[in-house]
Design a protein around this nucleic acid. Sequence first.
DNA 1: ACCTGAACACCGTTCAAGT
DNA 2: ACCTGAACACCGTTCAAGT
Lengths: 183, 183
Amino acid sequence: MPTPSRTSLDAITAAGGDILDTRGLPGLTMQAVAQAVGVKPPSLYKHVADRDALVGLVADAAATDLATHLARRGGVAGLAGRGELAGLARSLRAWATAHPERFRLVFSGHGSPEVAAAAGAPLLKAARDLVGPADKLSAARLLTAWATGFISMELAGAFQLGGNVDAAFEYGIGRLTAALHEG
Amino acid sequence: MPTPSRTSLDAITAAGGDILDTRGLPGLTMQAVAQAVGVKPPSLYKHVADRDALVGLVADAAATDLATHLARRGGVAGLAGRGELAGLARSLRAWATAHPERFRLVFSGHGSPEVAAAAGAPLLKAARDLVGPADKLSAARLLTAWATGFISMELAGAFQLGGNVDAAFEYGIGRLTAALHEG
DNA sequence: ACCTGAACACCGTTCAAGT
DNA sequence: ACCTGAACACCGTTCAAGT
């Protein structure tokens, strides 16, 4: 007699995201997720291959959330060129500050490359407006690498030497957008 | 009757580094390290508080290794200003490529902030030569954030969109050093 | 067709007992 | 003073048995 699923991939993914936020990646265990969706751990294997696959699902969901966050911000501002890139960088940092564990997971390589690439689309578009199609990929990578590196170091507590971290972020935005604008 | 230690912190740290290289951070277990130094797992707790502390030791050893690698390269080249920063960035990437797991660990926040800061000293010096003392901290952070972000994405396989990754790295060096030089 | 209990291998950690 | 065996809690995963 076929029994309807007592849980679902969506429920599992959502519960995984909540657990990631509150207990970090080490706390994202099969047991914790199973309990959150009201099922015993072995049942999860009917929906997911193993823990790695579950972590990948949570990573992809976070990347998609980030993508819509970036796309919305870009649309609202409607600025072209230099200001658009700056806005995207600030928007990325704001999202990372609100969801530090999700940010770390998105850029850790646990998700699918396709989903991660989709999240970078707004950046690619803004980069093309600034430097033209020939250099847009390199320019987008320059800004993405800097922003994710800066935010990762900030989240890891690597900015112990003092100084204003907000100011350092704005300094980077200013120098980078100026450097790209000239090219 | 006092018994001389059958192992040591140095041996434990060195074995931890080897295991990290070959089996990654998940493979860096108390059991694996104990076996490598010829001891049973409970004995490690006479030398180390817990696994987190052991991981921290390995991270600090890696950061120190990176620091000497960067300092040596800087000394050999002997270039001032713009070329020095570019050389340091390439040197960082070369070290990361040779020891990807150690690189990831160094910038993951598991080590002590003091040791990590010491590794950044050559960069701080090169930045001061280029932009002056007022902006040296922001400038060093700009280059460090970009380089670590770029390399992290490269190691995570985030550069799926094609294009020449080496060329993108050189593009970043060129734009960044130019932007800092003008300031 | 999905869920469960029981089981196994593995891991971190504690502690009393050895030398 | 350091090392060990035994033990405990926890985790991922498999599988036969339930409904």
